[in-house]
Amino acid sequence: MLGIIAAVLFFIAFVINAAEVSTDDVFASTNIMLIGLALLALHVAGIGSGWAARGRRR
């Protein structure tokens, strides 16, 4: 789930950068990209990937 959110944030950062939209310093494309990278790192680390079903193996 975090990987999908990171991809959406990367797309938003790309659109802001490509359209040269003037935004606040908080919503700058670099800041959105860094948030996306943090979410992607959490996804790769296994956080937010959902619960794994652990059943008995016979």
Rank of each mutant, 00 (worst) to 15 (best):
M1L: 12
M1V: 07
M1P: 09
M1K: 10
L2A: 12
G3A: 14
I5P: 02
I5N: 13
I5L: 13
A6L: 00
A6N: 00
A7F: 10
A7P: 03
V8T: 14
F10I: 05
I12Y: 03
A13M: 00
A13D: 00
A13P: 03
F14P: 02
F14A: 14
V15Y: 07
V15R: 13
I16S: 06
A18N: 15
A18L: 12
A18Q: 15
A18M: 14
A19R: 05
V21T: 05
V21S: 05
V21N: 00
S22K: 11
S22C: 02
D24W: 11
D25P: 08
V26H: 07
V26M: 07
V26T: 11
F27H: 06
A28S: 15
S29T: 00
S29H: 05
T30D: 06
L34C: 08
L34D: 05
L34G: 08
L34T: 08
I35F: 03
L37G: 15
L39D: 02
L39Q: 06
L40R: 04
A41R: 06
A41I: 12
L42F: 11
L42E: 00
L42D: 01
H43W: 08
V44F: 15
A45S: 12
I47M: 05
I47G: 02
I47N: 01
G48M: 01
G48P: 00
S49G: 05
S49I: 10
G50N: 02
W51Q: 15
A52G: 10
A53P: 12
R54E: 12
R56G: 15
R56H: 11
R57W: 09
R58I: 04
